[in-house]
Structures are given as structure tokens and as C-alpha cells.
Amino acid sequence: MTDVTQSPRRPARWRYALGAAALALLGLLAIGLTREPGRLPSALVGQPMPAFEIAYLEREGVLRSADLAGEPLVLNFWASWCTSCRQEHAQLIRLGQFSETSGAFRIAGINYRDDPDRAAAYLAREGRFPYPSGHDPRGRLGIDFGVYGMPETFFIDAGGIVRMRHAGPLTAAVLAEAMPRIGVTP
């Protein structure tokens, strides 16, 4: 009863506040829509690279992180079952050749959760990398690096600190951004 007589004159400041809050929430949700849920920041950036010792994929011996230390390093996780790895394959071969000719950085591959025979067939078909790959059949090293999809590439500076992680195929644009971060002019 009182409400009926009172409501038309009551200032509705709280309504504006409520409207503003609803708009703010909508804005927040709109920002959320533009974000890609699959893209995760790496916990490793700014941290020392995890140490590892894993068997080579196609040769005898062990790939050791200690042997790679002291120079900038590009570490590429790949697999024969990963279709988008094919997209970056030519780029990786070029990068490997650039590493050989310039001597400015090291590069190594990690064959991730793969069957060695399939990996060998993949390399025979797509072309061999000018650098060796280690073999991580169970993905343990991948977990150490916080890997969640293939391909992923880590850029480590001469001091052994991870400077950048790229998830997805490597492109010239990605390399142009990543290589200077580890002290290499692309």
C-alpha cells in the first residue's frame, strides 16, 4: 500500500548502480569471448630451462641439456601424428641450416609421444632436420616443459633462461619476434 503511493517519487539511484554493474559484467564477458581458451601462458618463461638427458631418436647416444648450455637454444617439440607440425617443417629445416651457417645458436628437436618407426617415416617423407632430435616416448620431458599441444617451440638464451614459448607452427613472423629475445639476429 505504502509502496504504491511512494514509488513514483523515490529516487532510483540504486537502479543506475545496478545497471552499471550489469554493464560492467557484460563488458567483462565480452572480453572473455575474444580470448582464446586454448592459448595458455607458459610457466617456464623467465625460468631456467629444465635439465634433461634423453636418448636420441635416430642415432646412438644421449641428448643432454648440459651439452647445449652456453649458447642460445631453440628447442622444438614435434611428433609424426601432429598435422600442424608439417606446416612448420620447412621453416625448421631453414632454421637448422641458419644455425649451422651462422653458428649463433643451437637447435634441437624433441620427438614427443611418438613411435620411432613412424617418426623415421615422417622424417623420410617430409625431409630430415639438419639437427638431431631426442626421443620422449612417454612425454615426461614434455610435462617438465609444461607442453600441452604439438608443436611447441622454446627459445632459451645463452644463460639457460627460457625467454619465449610458442605454441603452434613456427612462422617467419614468430621467429622475427623470438630470435632477438635470445640474442640472435634473424
Binding site: L40, P41, S42, A43, Q47, I143, D144, F145, G146, Y148
Partner: peptide
């Protein structure tokens, strides 16, 4: 796991 994958 947090050191490897972050808070995610």
C-alpha cells in the same frame, strides 16, 4: 605441476 603448467 604448478611450476610446469602454472596456476592453470
Amino acid at each position: 605441476f604448478r611450476a610446469r603448467y602454472g596456476d592453470y
